[in-house]
Nucleic acid binder design. Structure first.
Lengths: 107, 107
DNA sequence: TTTGGTGCTACATAATGTGTAGCATTTTTG
DNA sequence: CAAAAATGCTACACATTATGTAGCACCAAA
């Protein structure tokens, strides 16, 4: 456990810092998905990894497995991705600022 | 590049998914810090890693190095951690829900 | 009954992170 | 002024984590 802490924020940061966790949550934000479709949405990452993360996210109560709909976000998972929405907007501004600063430096 | 995409949100997710990136941003949210203090705040992670991440966050324009104050968040970095604040609140609720569901299962 | 999709595992290889030692430089202190 | 302490940082051997491919057991449709 990297942060050796039981503070919720640290546990959450640990979880989110694992490769593909944020991506998987993000890809499930719109609609549920089958295993293989989720794999495809994440750019064809290995089934090993999908399976591992899906288990972790399930344990973390952010993801659920429904026989009909496949893998989908839990209520908590939904809440999380909603909080993440402003960060989506931020990412576009961030990209603009970054690019224009990079361009300036190249002059 | 895991997500092989130039969409800003994917680039941001890639960055945030790297170990210690979220933690470093979080630890700098209150006040700037020296190299070694930042290292300590992050639970004494290796200087190798701090240095690597600090460079990446600097390139990403989220972190700045000031001769007087040491390492600190840039304006963009500040904006980011503010957007992250609701996620701090979420983490506490998440932890509660998770714990009570875990307790139920153990019955 | 075979074709194609599903969820998933095994395992060798590659990439990433860790931990310790320590160096060169600047700042503090006696 | 000299010794001690703190600074930012690098090197490198080792451990952990992720990747990619192959493929299996299962089910449904053709």
């Amino acid at each position: 456990m990297p942060n050796s802490s039981n503070r919720p924020i640290m546990q959450l940061i640990d979880l989110l810092s694992k490769k593909w966790v944020l991506r998987i949550l993000w890809e499930l934000r719109q609609s549920p998905s089958t295993f293989r479709e989720l794999q495809a949405r994440c750019g064809d990452i290995s089934p090993t990894m999908i399976n591992k993360r899906v288990k972790e996210l399930h344990q973390a109560r952010l993801l659920e497995k429904s026989p009909e709909r496949g893998y989908c976000l839990s209520e908590l998972g939904d809440e999380f991705v909603e909080l993440f929405a402003p960060i989506y907007l931020f990412s576009e501004r961030w990209s603009d600022v970054k690019n224009s600063l990079d361009a300036k430096e190249d002059q």
